[in-house]
Simulated scan of single mutants.
Amino acid sequence: MWVLLPPSEGKAEGSTGAPVDLGTLSLPGLTAARERMLTELTELCSGDPEKAREVLGLSEGLRGEVARNAALRAAPARPAGEIYTGVLFDALGLASLSAAARRRARASLLVFSGLWGVVRVTDRIPGYRCPAGVRLPGTGTPAAFWRGPLAEVLPAEAGRGPILDLRSAAYAAMWRPDADTARRTVTVRVLLSRIVNGTEQRSVVSHFNKATKGQLLRSLLEAGPLPRTPAKLTGALRDLGWRVEESAPGRLDVVITDVAP
């Protein structure tokens, strides 16, 4: 089973250790594309810092991200599961999973990235800033740049099991499953249910969408061996106490009544 995740825009920094080695990252078929994107980003950020800040859509307070990007090739790297921070990853809590759940996470989680394409949580990378929707001078938007390389590499690696797609729209645009893979793919939408004047009203959750997905994934990883079919995935989530409804083929609505993280 695969679980597809977005990255977090905020990222931790490595403190000590060797820099990234593209040849050691998972999915080696992406190495050439990663090298091209890394070159594009570091050259942009090594030039005019104001231009780089504008291209990357960074506020004045995030000016330091330009210098960090410029130094990516020499920056200390650490496992991607430690680099990515933010609401979803905080709710997932990789570091506090049981040993068995961590093994499942290492085998199943794929994090989509504007810079690296896709990484596993064990891949050693430095902190960086490269949202999927920015338009770089040479490669264009990462979302568009990665479609070709990922379409070539991912189908051959996808196996036969279900795919739980928890990506946000910008990162979902990097790879759309082909017909065979799409039949095994389940996307998730989080809805908040409230009773107003005796009638249930539902709304799409924004910020706590990420927290809910992190909590859902954590409970699934801790529960035991991951489901082998989409139907069993739906059943497993219900058994874990999640209120899930099949709103369309391949789409689950997770209905919550509380937005507390």
Rank of each mutant, 00 (worst) to 15 (best):
M1K: 08
G10T: 14
G23N: 14
T24E: 15
T24S: 15
L25R: 10
S26Q: 08
L27A: 14
R34G: 00
E35D: 11
M37G: 06
T42P: 03
C45A: 11
P49A: 12
P49E: 02
A52T: 03
G61M: 08
L62M: 15
V66M: 04
R68S: 03
R68T: 13
N69F: 01
A71M: 09
A74K: 15
A75Q: 06
R78C: 15
S96K: 14
A100R: 14
A105S: 01
L109T: 07
L115I: 05
G127Q: 06
R129W: 04
C130G: 04
P131N: 07
A132F: 02
R135K: 15
G140H: 04
G140T: 07
W146D: 03
G148S: 11
L150Q: 08
A151L: 00
V153P: 03
L154Y: 03
P155S: 01
G161T: 06
M174F: 06
W175A: 00
R176S: 14
R176M: 05
A182V: 09
V188S: 10
V188T: 03
T199V: 12
T199W: 13
Q201G: 01
V204L: 09
G214A: 05
P230G: 06
A231W: 07
A231T: 08
K232E: 12
L233P: 05
L240T: 09
W242E: 09
S247Q: 05
A248N: 15
P249W: 12
G250D: 04
G250Y: 07
R251D: 01
R251G: 02
D258Q: 12
V259Y: 03
P261V: 09
